[in-house]
């Protein structure tokens, strides 16, 4: 059987996470792990960077770490 990815790295998926709560880059990467999306590390970084540039989320520091978030 072909391996199917159970998670898709899409703008809509990222948007939904960032509306729910502020997240660091690492938090986001954890949601879209390569073993779940089937993407390479490089693809994941590139696609996520493009999506974040498009979404242009708000940023704030929480515990001295930069978090992204979106409001509806």
């Amino acid at each position: 059987t072909p391996s199917s990815s159970d998670v898709q790295l899409t703008e809509e998926a990222v948007r939904r996470y960032l509306i729910r709560k502020p997240m660091t880059t690492k938090d986001l990467l954890k949601k879209f792990q390569t073993k779940r999306t089937g993407l390479s590390s490089e693809q994941t970084v590139n696609v996520l960077a493009q999506i974040l540039k498009r979404l242009n989320p708000e940023r704030k520091n929480i515990n001295e770490k930069m978090h992204f978030y979106l409001t509806e």
């Binding site: 994941t44 970084v45 540039k53």
Partner: peptide, 20 residues
């Protein structure tokens, strides 16, 4: 691994730094 996650986060932040 954790170090791979760190590397990816660093790469992503580097990509975004030009933009932010």
């Amino acid at each position: 691994s954790n170090s791979e996650a760190d590397e990816m986060a660093a790469a992503l932040e580097a990509e975004l730094n030009d933009f932010m």
